[in-house]
């Protein structure tokens, strides 16, 4: 795995600059976080509790 000794190629540098510009705006926004929390945390919690109530939990 050779390392690059020379500076970045101009075409790559140009591409990096374009991709990095305003990149923070492309991160997950408030709506994204809301959906992630609903589908990835809240929904699983509800499903796990529902399964528990269905009798999957520990025997009493």
């Amino acid at each position: 795995m050779a390392e690059r000794d020379a500076p970045l190629p101009p075409a790559l540098a140009e591409r990096l600059a374009a991709a990095e510009r305003d990149s923070a705006d492309r991160d997950f926004d408030a709506t994204s976080w809301a959906w992630m929390l609903i589908l990835g945390a809240l929904l699983p919690l509800v499903l796990i509790m529902a399964g528990w109530l269905l009798g999957a939990g520990p025997a009493t």
């Binding site: 991709a19 990149s23 991160d27 992630m36 589908l39 929904l43 699983p44 499903l47 269905l54």
Partner: peptide
């Protein structure tokens, strides 16, 4: 119980995957 446990697990796992590499992939 299997359907509920599996669905819950899959959604949790998917969230972890999305939060792991997702930010850099979507930003850059």
């Amino acid at each position: 119980a299997g359907a509920l446990a599996l669905t819950a697990g899959c959604m949790i796992g998917m969230l972890l995957v999305l939060l792991a590499g997702g930010p850099l992939s979507v930003r850059f």
